[in-house]
Design a protein around this nucleic acid. Sequence first.
DNA 1: CATTTATCCTAT
DNA 2: TTAGATAGGATAAATG
Length: 956
Amino acid sequence: MSNCYEYSLKPPSTAEIVSTFGDSDLPSKLYRAPYYAVESDAPDHPREYAGLVYHLRGGDGLDTLDEWTSASAEESLDIIPNYDKASGSESNIWGWQYAASPPSVRQVRRWLTERGKRKRQTKPKDPSQIDGPTQANPYGMRPTLNPQNVPSVRQEGNMEVLAIEVFAPSITGKLPDPAADEVVVVFWSIYDSDSQNINQHFSSLCQAGIIAVNKQELNSRKIRGWSLDVVDTELELLNRVVDIVQDLDPDIIVGWDVQTSSLGYLDARAKSYDFNLAEQLSRAPGRTTNGGTDQWGAQTTTTFKIVGRHVLNLWRVIRAEQNFTTYTFEYTVFQILRKRTPHYSPHTLTSWYYSSVPEHVSRLLRYFTDRTSMVLEIIDVAQIVTKTAEFARIFGVDFFSVLSRGSQFKVESFMFRIAKPESFVLLSPSRQDVGRQNAAECMPLIMEPLSAFYNSPLLVLDFQSLYPSVMIAYNYCYSTCIGRVVDFKGQNKFGVTELHQPPGLLEKLKDHVNVAPNGMVYVKPEVRKGLLARMLTELLDTRVMVKQAMKVTKDDKALQRVLDARQLGLKFIANVTYGYTSATFSGRMPAVEIADSIVQSGRETLEKAIRVIDSTKKWGAKVVYGDTDSVFVYLIGKTKEQAFRIGQDIADTITAMNPAPVKLKFEKVYLPCVLLAKKRYVGFKFENPDDKEPVFDAKGIETVRRDGVPAQQKMVETCLKILFRTQDLSRVKEYCCDSWSRMLENRISPQDFIFAKEVKMGTYSDKVPPPPGVAVAARRMVEDSGYEPQYGERVPYVIIRGKPLERLVDRAVAPEEVLNDSHKYIDASYYISRVLIPPLERIFNLVGADVRSWYDDMPKALRADQPDAYLLSPRKVLDYVDLANRVNIDGHFLASRCLTCSEPTSYGVCMDCRTDEQPTIARLLVKVGKTESKLKNVHTVCSSCSGNPRYRTHPM
DNA sequence: CATTTATCCTAT
DNA sequence: TTAGATAGGATAAATG
């Protein structure tokens, strides 16, 4: 390790744990925490802080230790092992010290008795790496932040990742139920997440195996690259899994879904043998952190935890990282690995397992081995481990906290590293204190846009990191505020506390203060540079350095990835620091007054910029929209080239008007563009003057939202493109009418009409009908008790034709139902009237077209048998009930014609054709072939047309 | 027919 | 125990 601040992200090995804590007294929680503080005024729940122990009193049995009630911060530090008070170094705490959270009474006692006896193991210090400010390092930043000081690729920093998937046949054909269905095969694969590996072929880095319960057909089937291990019983199989985990000793265990399959299923099975899997797999034998209900884990990461190893629930990791319309394994594989993978129902898999055809068994094994290695491949391609590890280093928190904890924890951890050398102690308000804060009074500026179609260049400029810049420029911080200009309600409240400044302070400092627009007074940097300003300056500067480093190391792919992750981590902290001050609901140390100062200053900065732009004659510009930190400037009658010049001029002028580092950046030119509403606009984007082809760029509208259907996204985008390219409304109309008639004739792919929205079971009000996705999921739960959507899972559904006035919820069904039930039809008129027309109407109203009339005026022949409930009043709909019923009956007959000879029948293939087998089969095969090639064609056309892989159909 | 409530998802 | 913020648009369905 190159410097003393380097610490590993890997959990400790069993040997290390035992050598640190001894066999008999392992801490209950081995996740590495930097160090802990016990707060003084929340006796019920001492809260851990990534920082100093500054008071040790009350709470968690510690109240028996009377002598500590009056302990000063200085004294308290002594009880932390290896804390070197003289130098302020905590090097060993950052090393392999693992702390329980919070320290037990026993642990504190032991620290007490061992104090003094303990031999300190501080490493010799390199002067450039001392925490305190030096000339080279004026703010005493951790060397970790300096890209030059950190070896970008560590010799032993890589982690071993083990993927586990399991197969349990289910007799019922439903999802396997851990209470009844035994696990018969376990698949595992391990790889080394070293970022140096990117040039090697992925499969060459893996080692993999299958553990199967003895079965004749299975024993003879081999999969290349996978060792086969045969056992006699399920219990033996579980023991083999434990052996393998202990033997390979991975740092991370992963499954696509570790709650209901993979490890979660194994754990549930293990319970029936009274066998604690988590305990067996752990690195601290006999320890587990599981038990009880862990709602938080279930909703964010995983409830299954193993002491000493990280358990990743891959779908949740992906959900947090990527914006997908669904998070099925198949869809994720397609999006990330760019390949297709089939999905088989538990019923099919089970039938393969019991099949006597050897091919079936092979197929089953192949399916799962592929799945297991793809889990690792996703982790590799999406850079999950390396990215998370880099974030952990930047934030100064442990690996798992990067995934499991919120932004406050990370800001705090980072802030503390700046606060400590300054001898600042963060206060720790109680929930009540936080709740008693004043209400926020300031709001960002969001202009009402001049909604229109803009045919001349529209400039977009935004202030780069406005809030962090404001904090730096005006020195807004906890540590620089000296109160209000005028007392509020007779009090001088500041955040969660009361300010008691010495009398005469303001007089003394009156030439050295900034007064924020909300009436708070802050000292200028020459008096004291604020903690937040200091931290943000470092963050932004370091980020610039990292970005520069990226430019000069273009050839080193591994390094690029690390640097990119580092840059993103820095950006993250800078962006959420404002949020930390304004976290009024759950805040750990919020201060509304600071948040208000920032917001109001930001607002005034923007307002001033707008005034200047509007009033500067030479630009001939008009501000038509602005949101928080951005301005949209219309340059009527100017060319694209002029626009780029003026844009740069505006940016420079406004930047020069503002204190550093506030900077207005010229972002892009839209030509043409549509402003629809606040936070909703779309245009053809040019980022450079010499860009030839514009990029379709939309914000807030249906094309970028995930609560519509693919057809809606495609149609809105295509119509907009036609409008932008040709400005010919008749072409748009032609396209729309064409699409609608195809829908009415049912010449559509159901794929394009699937909604998929998040479902959060257990959070819904029972006063109103549930959202459609919830109703669909609930119905499926009745059918298959094993099925319960995970918290936040996106449940797909389509809307089918139903009786008029039937509620939408009752017409929402799972997509498979439409495919499997010939009486169910996608409700084309619902989709047209309620899903497709409204967004188009909003857009084309602005150019004077009436989209709905296009539909109303369409040749009605096609729609004669479908009264359109959405065009009628509810009363009139009732008149149509009879007709609708007839239509339904008619539809029934129409759909039920023999597939080969077209004679009416209700059996798919009529009895006559059934008896005449050979020609029927031949005809059916021809039909299947034709239909398949048709479908393939459609897919090709579809994807080539949209050009966006996101809209390509995928296996469900 | 307008307003309110519940829900979802996005912009900044 | 955990948990950045607010503003805003949109739909469905109940309510006044």
